[in-house]
Amino acid sequence: MPQLNPEFFVSQLFWLAVFFTFLFVFLWRVSLPRIATVLEKRQNKIDENLSSAKELQEQAMEIEKKINDQINKAKLETDEKIKETINTLQEDVSSQLSSLDKDLEKKVSDAEKEILKSKDNQMKNINNEIAKITKLTVGKITDIKLSDNEINKVIETHKGNFN
């Protein structure tokens, strides 16, 4: 087995020492610090980004809160305005309704008065006509000359009977 031949043991050990020492020193002093800085840099960047993301998230949450507050405020204000408007409208309607009622009542009473008046006029006319007819009839049938006053008196006394 060539491995057990001591002829090249010293050479093997010598070159192993040379190359391994070189490798160790090179990696220790050059390669590994470089990789370490890269990794550290990246970690720092990631941490930075994460913290800024967190900050932004907090800001966004604050803004959202503000928006919600404003929305709530606006809602309350709108509700109040709606209530107010409803109230004023109701007042308007009721006042208009009451004035309308008054108008109507007045018109009804006026009309009633008019009716009564015209009824009276009609009754007077009827009375006059009756008086005339009576005068004519009495004059034609008899020779009695009745004065208007007498006829009117009679009519007045019998007025209830005609109705």
């Binding site: 002829e7 090249f8 010293v10 050479s11 093997q12 010598f14 070159w15 192993l16 190359f19 391994f20």
Partner: peptide, 14 residues
Amino acid sequence: GYNISFTNSSFAMM
């Protein structure tokens, strides 16, 4: 006095 020849093994290490 020691044989420290550069061998195929040393080459592989290099």
